[in-house]
Protein backbone atom coordinates (compact mmCIF):
# COMPACT_ATOMS: atom_id res chain seq x y z
CA UNK A 1 0.00 0.00 0.00
CA UNK A 2 1.31 3.41 -0.83
CA UNK A 3 0.94 6.57 1.18
CA UNK A 4 0.62 10.18 0.11
CA UNK A 5 1.51 13.44 1.84
CA UNK A 6 -1.99 13.78 3.24
CA UNK A 7 -1.80 10.31 4.75
CA UNK A 8 1.55 11.15 6.35
CA UNK A 9 0.10 14.35 7.79
CA UNK A 10 -2.73 12.38 9.33
CA UNK A 11 -0.24 9.95 10.91
CA UNK A 12 1.83 12.84 12.18
CA UNK A 13 -1.27 14.32 13.77
CA UNK A 14 -2.06 11.02 15.51
CA UNK A 15 1.55 10.69 16.68
CA UNK A 16 1.74 14.34 17.76
CA UNK A 17 4.56 15.22 15.41
CA UNK A 18 4.90 18.31 13.26
CA UNK A 19 6.32 17.84 9.81
CA UNK A 20 7.29 21.07 8.15
CA UNK A 21 6.12 21.80 4.63
CA UNK A 22 9.63 21.50 3.27
CA UNK A 23 10.11 18.05 4.82
CA UNK A 24 6.79 16.51 3.92
CA UNK A 25 7.82 15.28 0.47
CA UNK A 26 10.98 13.62 1.74
CA UNK A 27 9.18 12.10 4.71
CA UNK A 28 6.43 10.74 2.50
CA UNK A 29 9.04 9.25 0.19
CA UNK A 30 10.95 7.54 2.98
CA UNK A 31 7.81 6.21 4.67
CA UNK A 32 6.82 4.91 1.25
CA UNK A 33 10.17 3.09 0.98
CA UNK A 34 9.62 1.40 4.33
CA UNK A 35 6.07 0.40 3.45
CA UNK A 36 7.32 -1.00 0.15
CA UNK A 37 9.74 -3.14 2.15
CA UNK A 38 7.17 -4.46 4.59
CA UNK A 39 4.52 -4.97 1.92
CA UNK A 40 6.37 -8.20 1.16
CA UNK A 41 4.25 -9.82 3.88
CA UNK A 42 1.06 -9.13 1.97
CA UNK A 43 1.87 -12.10 -0.29
CA UNK A 44 2.12 -14.49 2.60
CA UNK A 45 -0.72 -16.91 3.25
CA UNK A 46 -1.16 -16.98 7.04
CA UNK A 47 -4.74 -18.13 7.32
CA UNK A 48 -3.76 -21.14 9.42
CA UNK A 49 -1.24 -19.30 11.58
CA UNK A 50 -1.81 -17.95 15.07
CA UNK A 51 -0.23 -14.57 15.77
CA UNK A 52 2.79 -14.55 18.11
CA UNK A 53 3.06 -11.61 20.52
CA UNK A 54 5.85 -12.93 22.70
CA UNK A 55 8.73 -15.19 21.84
CA UNK A 56 8.30 -17.26 24.99
CA UNK A 57 5.14 -19.16 25.75
CA UNK A 58 4.76 -17.61 29.18
CA UNK A 59 1.95 -16.24 31.26
CA UNK A 60 1.57 -13.05 33.24
CA UNK A 61 2.95 -13.21 36.75
CA UNK A 62 0.80 -11.55 39.41
CA UNK A 63 2.05 -9.16 42.04
CA UNK A 64 0.81 -9.38 45.63
CA UNK A 65 -1.45 -6.43 46.46
CA UNK A 66 0.97 -4.56 48.67
CA UNK A 67 2.03 -0.92 48.79
CA UNK A 68 5.74 -0.90 48.09
CA UNK A 69 6.27 2.66 46.87
CA UNK A 70 7.07 5.64 49.02
CA UNK A 71 6.52 9.29 48.25
CA UNK A 72 9.32 10.55 45.98
CA UNK A 73 7.49 13.53 44.62
CA UNK A 74 10.29 16.00 45.16
CA UNK A 75 12.83 13.85 43.34
CA UNK A 76 10.46 13.27 40.44
CA UNK A 77 9.32 16.84 40.16
CA UNK A 78 12.91 17.99 39.99
CA UNK A 79 12.89 16.38 36.52
CA UNK A 80 9.84 18.28 35.34
CA UNK A 81 9.97 21.25 33.00
CA UNK A 82 7.12 23.04 34.82
CA UNK A 83 5.57 22.31 38.22
CA UNK A 84 3.65 24.26 40.82
CA UNK A 85 2.07 23.25 44.13
CA UNK A 86 3.01 19.67 43.42
CA UNK A 87 1.22 19.66 40.07
CA UNK A 88 2.62 19.24 36.58
CA UNK A 89 1.53 22.18 34.47
CA UNK A 90 0.37 22.03 30.86
CA UNK A 91 -1.28 24.67 28.68
CA UNK A 92 -4.94 25.03 29.61
CA UNK A 93 -6.98 21.95 28.72
CA UNK A 94 -10.48 22.55 27.43
CA UNK A 95 -13.07 19.80 27.95
Amino acid sequence: MSIDAKGVEKLAQLARLDISEKDIAATTRSIGEVLKLVDQLQQLDTRQIEPLSHPLDAKQRLRADRVTETNQRDAFEALAPLCEDGLYLVPRVIE
Binding site: M1, L11, L35, Q42, S53
Partner: peptide, 23 residues
Protein backbone atom coordinates in the same frame (compact mmCIF):
# COMPACT_ATOMS: atom_id res chain seq x y z
CA UNK B 1 6.95 6.41 15.00
CA UNK B 2 5.08 7.27 11.81
CA UNK B 3 5.48 3.78 10.35
CA UNK B 4 4.41 2.25 13.65
CA UNK B 5 1.39 4.52 13.84
CA UNK B 6 0.47 3.50 10.32
CA UNK B 7 0.67 -0.26 10.83
CA UNK B 8 -1.49 -0.08 13.96
CA UNK B 9 -4.09 2.31 12.61
CA UNK B 10 -7.67 1.36 11.91
CA UNK B 11 -7.99 -0.56 8.69
CA UNK B 12 -4.31 -1.51 8.51
CA UNK B 13 -3.87 -3.42 11.74
CA UNK B 14 -4.79 -6.84 10.33
CA UNK B 15 -2.90 -6.39 7.10
CA UNK B 16 0.28 -5.25 8.81
CA UNK B 17 0.60 -5.80 12.54
CA UNK B 18 -1.38 -8.99 12.84
CA UNK B 19 0.14 -10.35 9.67
CA UNK B 20 3.61 -9.62 11.07
CA UNK B 21 2.79 -11.46 14.29
CA UNK B 22 1.83 -14.46 12.20
CA UNK B 23 5.03 -14.25 10.21
Amino acid sequence: ILVGTYVLSAGFYDAYYRQAQKA
